[in-house]
Design a protein around this nucleic acid. Structure first.
Length: 801
RNA sequence: GGGCGCGUAGCUCAGCGGGAGAGCACUCGCUUCACACGCGAGGGGUCGCUGGUUCGAUCCCAGCCGCGCCCACCA
């Protein structure tokens, strides 16, 4: 057998990736009515994206689960595909257009969309190839894209269903406007960042009588849009003023003083200027009190509307300076002070959010959230770790209307048409006439939907919904969703809501929230900061198996720092396995159906079976790092260091080899979900294995009767190695045990150290058992255990003489 | 402002009520015919700090000190 002494994954891995896929072994079978199904839909990466550490970890987790279930006989579907990533894709193409000196507005909508498709054909869709290189056994034949014709139909159906149930509506409300994206963004896409600001205190004189009310604001430019001043109704300083009026600086508008409990008495002056057009709190107060919603800042962030001419066209900052100057000049400025507070920024562009009142489409979420909340609270959907389920539930409880329309072109255009009279027609297909007045001239709403609106349908739109397909019937509901923490609200919760709304069932019963792998310095990996580590480079360097092992080893319920040590550990494991296999393969062929006859053989089978059990338990709990740790120690400590060393001299015996191959076979199966390539490669070298390991049956339980002899031999060997006596592990364990426990000719060396250790242990045990309070209060089994240990140590010390 | 999490060996992390663990790194000994990406042995820790509960605390409770994350309409 010509096998390199050093396992080289390169070439081997690519070959198996191609073979498995070509042989159709990744495929799910929707015609199969017999096997139970196991379904995971991959979180669809951005079509423009490249594999990063999060994808790699998540892909490995899902692949380990998929491979494990495939071996256990499940009809597994791991659904691949892409998300169109509306805003980020559009921004990328616009950036390219800018380098050409043009813009999407120059091109017009149709031409621009053509450019996006061209761009995607050229640069998009590379990540599935990268998943293949990781060894991910997705059913690539079923790749879906959220812009596929069928998927688009699903999106329209969802919209129409929501509209017909009264959840989707159009309204003028305050939105998060991003001047950089030139679009609204949802609340979830707003990041609150602390900024250094200035709080300006301005006096608003009372219309009748003397005096004034002082308000505090961080945005003096919005004074031009003030329509009221609000105070707390119980505030003794101000409550007598409610109903009176003040004059707004600069514009000299007369506005009322109103009472509202939303006003905090202990912040600023306790009096709040009300600008419903430019502040979310003020908007709510304004709606409650029927106030006008004036706009003085436009979509471009510049001053506009019914304002003095000298303000028109200024930026907000310029206008603010001008207002402050006016306040100074007119003795209305009380003071200005430094103020640090959190301000909403667009999480994509980093631009400060401009709250504006705009006519937008909204989705009322309360009725959708309720069943999803019930599913989480009842445990039908379980989060791992559970804390994320509690957070997800909290969000659902406090859910707010969702602004779903975006002022962009790339994405799913709203299935909404308007007639000349402004009547609304919502339809899955282009309507011939206005649903309300029958007018034939209709204009389609130019906006597109929030990307996450379509993502919410991923678990069933990928299966053909809204059509009643065989795949949908077979594979919905699915089983597991595995994803990063940051899209629990954006995506996970919405999939649960959408699944329950459209299909009446949860899309998955377990949600794995994997850890975030941080850069080695503890910071988040960031492309722009150059702190990202490219998983493809790791694969090139160490192979996919090693990378998978390392990522699983690193994974945890909490964030972890990346360390290449774990990947190298995986490489050593693959190499160790390779060489252990070489040892057996070089020894000669096996004899089938051999029964274990020696204690070592029964022992290793018992060890493998015990590890099978705990690994299954770990995987069922999605505890991957402990699972791979156990497999590592099974391979190194049990299989190689003890078992193979013990049987080495007897490898000439076909019976011995047969058991060894049987043990190796089981070991390879246990390792396959983590290290698919090296295990499959070794598998083909095993005599008589015609089928592929990827579809080989997962090992059944295999109970063994063992005597404890090996464990005693291990203890004895350790003692004697420590004492400086070199002993051979070859030969049967009982003889080793006898030899080392009653040292004779083999003996010698210094066992004093071991005696000291045992004496200390005995002393400790005696001390504990002499403590009456311990014996009286501790659990009886704990006390018994101490007694047994004490006996054990005494016996061992005795044996050492 | 509300919530969550973390501080354990030089590094990355397990353990979470009864003897401090793993891998790497380090020291020593082994070119032993599967593997030097190996084998064997070893050094290294007041388990952030201070109190409390307990026969017993790295583990539970409280406070403090550091670090991180999420949510959030105090202008």
């Amino acid at each position: 057998m010509e096998l390199a002494t050093l396992y080289n994954p390169h070439g081997v891995e690519e070959r198996w990736q191609q073979t498995w896929e070509a042989e159709g072994l990744y495929r799910a079978d929707d015609a199969d009515e017999t096997r139970p199904t196991y379904v995971i839909a991959v979180p669809p990466p951005n079509v423009t994206g490249a594999l990063h550490m999060g994808h790699a970890l998540n892909g490995t987790i899902q692949d380990a689960l998929i491979r494990w279930h495939r071996m256990r006989g499940f009809n597994t579907l791991w659904q691949p595909g892409y998300d169109h990533a509306a805003i980020s894709t559009e921004m990328m193409v616009e950036r390219q257009l800018r380098t050409e000196g043009t813009s999407r507005f120059d091109l017009g909508r149709e031409q621009f969309l053509e450019r996006v498709w061209e761009w995607l054909h050229q640069y998009g869709g590379i990540i599935m190839g990268q998943f293949r290189r990781l060894g991910c056994s997705l059913d690539y034949d079923r790749e879906r894209f959220t812009m596929d014709d069928g998927y688009v139909r699903a999106v329209y159906r969802f919209f129409v269903d929501l509209y017909e149930r009264g959840y989707m509506y159009r309204d003028n409300r305050i939105v998060n406007w991003c001047t950089d994206c030139a679009s609204t963004v949802s609340d979830l896409e707003v990041e609150h960042i602390d900024v250094d600001d200035t709080l300006t205190y301005a006096r608003y004189p009372l219309v009748d009588g003397d005096g004034s009310v002082t308000i505090a604001t961080v945005r003096p430019a919005t004074i031009l849009a003030d329509v009221a001043v609000a105070v707390h109704p119980e505030d003794d300083r101000y409550k007598h003023l409610i109903g009176k009026h003040v004059r707004v600086p600069v514009v000299d508008r007369v506005v009322p003083i109103i009472g509202d409990e939303a006003v905090e008495t202990d912040f600023g002056t306790g009096a709040l200027k009300i600008t419903p057009g430019h502040d979310p709190v003020d908007f709510e107060i304004g709606r409650k009190h029927g106030l006008e919603e004036l706009t003085v800042i436009g979509l471009d962030g510049r001053m506009t509307g019914d304002i003095p001419d000298e303000y028109k066209g200024l930026t907000e900052d310029e206008a603010a300076d001008k207002v402050v100057q006016w306040l100074k000049d007119n003795d209305r400025l009380e003071k200005r002070e430094h103020y640090r507070h959190a301000v909403g920024h667009c999480d994509r562009s980093g631009t400060r959010i401009q709250p504006l009142v705009l006519l937008q489409w909204w989705c009322e979420m309360g009725d959708l959230a309720r069943p999803a909340l019930e599913a989480i609270e009842s445990g039908r959907v379980r989060f791992h770790p559970p804390v994320h389920g509690r957070v997800a539930a909290d969000w659902l409880r406090a859910i707010r209307p969702w602004n779903v329309s975006r002022q962009q072109w790339w994405g799913h255009q709203l299935p909404v048409w308007y007639c000349a009279d402004g009547h609304v027609t919502v339809s899955e297909t282009e309507p011939a006439a206005c649903a309300e007045c029958g007018a034939g001239e209709l204009t389609r709403d130019p906006d597109v939907l929030d990307t996450w609106f379509s993502s919410a349908l991923w678990p069933f739109a990928t299966l053909g919904w809204p059509d009643d397909t065989r795949a949908l019937r077979r594979f919905y509901p699915g089983d597991v969703d595995s994803t990063a923490r940051d899209i629990i609200f954006l995506w996970v919760n919405r999939m649960i809501m959408a699944g329950l709304f459209e299909l009446g069932d949860i899309p998955f019963h377990d949600v794995i929230i994997h850890s975030t792998i941080l850069a080695p310095d503890g910071q988040r990996m960031s492309k722009s900061k150059g702190t990202g580590i490219d998983p493809l480079e790791l694969i090139d360097q160490h192979g996919a198996d090693s990378t998978r092992y390392g990522l699983l080893k690193m994974s945890s319920t909490q964030d972890v720092r990346f360390s290449s040590q774990q990947i190298e550990e995986g490489r050593r494991l693959a190499n160790k396995l390779w060489n252990a296999s070489r040892l057996l393969l070089m020894a000669g062929p096996e004899t089938p159906d051999a029964q274990p006859s020696s204690e070592e053989e029964r022992w290793i089978l018992a060890r493998i079976d015990a590890t099978r059990q705990v690994v299954e338990d770990d995987l069922a709990k999605y505890d991957f790092s402990h699972a791979v740790d156990r497999l590592y120690h099974l391979t190194f400590d049990d299989f190689c260091d003890w078992y193979l060393e013990a049987i080495k001299p007897r490898l000439g015996d076909a019976q011995t080899r047969a058991t060894a191959f049987a043990a190796l076979e089981r070991l390879l199966k246990l390792l396959h979900p983590v290290l698919p390539h090296v295990t499959e490669e070794i598998w083909t070298h095993l005599p008589g294995r015609e089928s592929r390991l990827i579809v080989a049956p997962w090992p059944e339980p295999l109970p063994q009767e063992t005597s404890g002899e090996i464990e005693r031999a291990q203890t004895a060997a350790r003692i004697y190695r420590r004492s400086g006596v070199r002993i051979a592990l070859a030969g049967d364990a009982e003889r080793i045990f006898t030899a080392v426990v009653r040292p004779s000719a083999n003996g010698g060396g210094d066992v004093g150290k071991e005696r000291d250790r045992l004496r200390k242990e005995i002393e400790r045990g005696e001390r504990m058992l002499a403590n009456e309070k311990f014996v009286a209060n501790a659990a009886p089994d704990v006390v018994d255990a101490e007694r047994e240990k004490l006996e054990q140590y005494r016996a061992e010390l005795d044996a050492l003489g």
